[in-house]
Write a protein that binds this DNA or RNA. Structure first.
Length: 553
RNA sequence: GCGCUCGUAGCUCAACUGGACAGAGCAUCGGCCUUCGGAGCCGAGGGUUGGGGGUUCGAAUCCCUCCGGGCGCGCCA
């Protein structure tokens, strides 16, 4: 509809220009669905945009444009309203045509292929394997995955990537923590290193090593064997948690490979060769002023001990990503990493790379509440709530939906009690229930002798009333909404769409006069076809957010 | 202190990236349905979009400035 109207208005403006009524040949106007449906199905602001340049009142310009629009039978009305909006109201036949298309497309209607198979990499989660995933990681994981699903749905080719540091100091510390626990279990004198990992899972890993090796590791020369075992176990645990949330990755990249491949050293050399580094107290720093960073951002590239910090591989990693030829690279991370990311991008850019394909999606923190009370979380002291525990308590669907039910840059307050409730105030339940209801109706229809699938060509869709067509309008807007959401990297819009769609359906369904299956066979057939399309639409939306679409509840 | 970010109904949040009268869900109050095509629906009250200024046909949205929360500012990740 948008392109149709855009073309019509464009033509009208050009015509008016040829007739000497407008100075402009074209205008940067928009076509939008008005918030208030009384204003019609679509509104165009062309006259308002042109008013200044034309030096005429908007309504007068609107008049000139409207008179020159080639109006077909698909329009019920074209009117000028308010400050000078041109409002279009489509005829019922138009919406019936849309419904027919939805029904006949075998689902393609819900997969607008605007991405044109462009390649996108989404890097998300990227948690270092030093412990189980927390609720905070959960938001990252779900956001990255939903974004990937959304991009795929609109036709991009997506690579889901997990990057982790396995060469750094933290991993060494992890190994030493395990070693300490191991020795303690073996009755040896040992204490956890300062800032070591104190979680119970460290003891579990140590216990595993005892089962496997007995006391054979007491004399181990370094903590490497402990680190390797910890990494292996923890990684398996992380991926297990992801699997419960239906999250998977295509590519894993780690720091060690970059170090071994010499890419980290190459990055340091390149930066130094360009005079972008400074040596201070034996360490190598990125010169913040030369790469255009605020000077409070001190980026250390190489410690005085000679080993690189975690950021240097990250710079090398981003260069490698750019070289892999993605059309777009998306990094998902929490707000506490903004400064770091800026530093990395600034360095990459200073090396002459075009960083414009890189985009960041940044999310704020998550708090859990139970009965209105905040649940305390702290990663340091191991009092965090593990993501697995949250999934145990409220289920994967609720976890996913709740994480997506907020714009990523607002803080997220996860109400555990609400998420568990099987009641309409729980948005997950509400949406899933709409789907189950439709499924139930379709089962009834089968019993009543209606064949499935119904043939869109033979069903009399013109029997549908405005209430059904209002839902068709909403569905017709869905593909465009997905494209906008994908472009803005905002998967939460899909969740909100689903809630609104479900709400409109529940309202419809509750009216006794709207019984889908009645004595009137032809009307029933039309409504059933419509109901099937609606069910498919909800199912496809749920798929994008990664939530189950149940047939029964 | 500096940088980033957020501030919208009592609470938790939307608002198609500058459009028409700022919308939902909880909570509160008042109704309808008594149903396995179950767990649903309707209505009411509630707002100077933190304050002030600016940009323009038009601002919750952009700019400036205060106020308030969050995050960051380590040879940690």
């Amino acid at each position: 509809m948008k392109t149709l109207l855009t073309n019509l208005v464009d033509d009208a403006i050009r015509r008016a220009n040829r007739e000497g009524l407008l100075k402009s040949e074209t205008a940067a106007f928009t076509i939008e669905a008005p918030k208030d449906s009384a204003h019609g199905d679509a509104a165009c602001n062309a006259a308002l945009v042109l008013a200044r340049f034309e030096g005429k009142p908007p309504r007068a310009i609107a008049q000139v444009i409207v008179e020159r629009i080639e109006r077909g039978a698909e329009f019920a009305d074209i009117a000028i309203a308010g400050a000078g909006f041109i409002n279009f109201k489509m005829a019922p036949e138009y919406w019936i045509g849309e419904l027919r298309e939805m029904a006949g497309s075998e689902g393609a209607f819900w997969r607008p292929r605007v991405g044109a198979r462009r390649r996108v990499q989404v890097e998300f989660l990227s948690a270092n394997p030093t412990g189980p995933l927390t609720v905070g990681h959960g938001r990252n994981a779900v956001l990255g995955d939903a974004l990937s699903r959304l991009l795929e749905t609109v036709g991009y080719e997506v690579t889901r990537e997990y990057y982790f540091n396995d060469g750094g100091r933290q991993m060494k510390l992890l190994g030493e923590s395990v070693r300490a626990r191991y020795l303690q279990e073996m009755g040896r004198e040992a204490s956890l290193p300062e800032d070591g990992y104190q979680g119970e899972y460290i003891k579990d890993i140590a216990a595993g090593l005892i089962r496997e090796h007995g006391d054979g590791l007491v004399a181990a020369v370094d903590s490497e064997v402990f680190r390797a075992e910890a990494q292996r176990t923890i990684f398996a645990d992380i991926l297990g948690t992801c699997k419960r949330l239906a999250i998977r990755f295509d590519v894993f990249t780690n720091e060690n490979d970059l170090l071994k491949g010499g890419q980290v050293d190459a990055a340091i050399e390149a930066l130094t060769a360009r005079g972008l580094t400074v040596e201070r107290e034996g360490a190598l720093w990125l010169s913040s002023e030369k790469v255009g960073l605020p000077n409070q951002q001190n980026v250390v590239l190489r410690r005085s001990s000679g080993e690189p910090t975690y950021r240097t591989p990250d710079i090398a990693y981003h260069i490698a990503k750019l070289k892999r030829g993605f059309d777009q690279i998306i990094d998902v991370f929490g707000a506490d990493h903004i400064a770091e990311h800026e530093g990395v991008i600034a360095a990459v850019k200073a090396l002459g790379y075009d960083t414009s394909p890189i985009r960041a999606i940044i999310y704020q923190f998550v708090t859990l509440t139970r009965g209105g009370e905040k649940i305390k979380m702290s990663t340091r002291r191991a009092t965090y709530v593990a993501l697995d525990e949250l999934i145990d308590e409220v289920g994967a669907d609720a976890v996913r939906f709740f994480f997506l039910f907020r714009k990523s840059d607002s803080q997220l307050d996860f109400d555990v009690d609400l998420a568990k409730r099987q009641a309409p105030e729980n948005p997950v339940f509400y949406v899933q229930y709409a789907h189950a209801r439709l499924a139930s109706v379709l089962r009834e229809a089968a019993k009543a002798g209606f064949g499935q699938p119904l043939d869109p060509a033979s069903v009399k869709l013109d029997l549908l009333a405005s209430e059904e067509l209002d839902l068709v309008k909403r569905m017709a807007a869905y593909p465009g909404l997905m494209c906008d959401a994908a472009l803005a990297l905002e998967p939460h819009r899909i969740a909100f769409f689903l809630l609104e769609l479900a709400g409109e359906f529940h309202r419809y369904y509750n009216k006794p006069s709207n019984r889908i299956i009645s004595e009137d066979r032809e009307l029933s057939a039309a409504r059933l076809l419509w109901a099937k399309v609606l069910k498919d639409c909800i199912a496809s939306g749920l798929k994008v957010v990664g939530v189950e679409a149940p047939e029964r509840m």
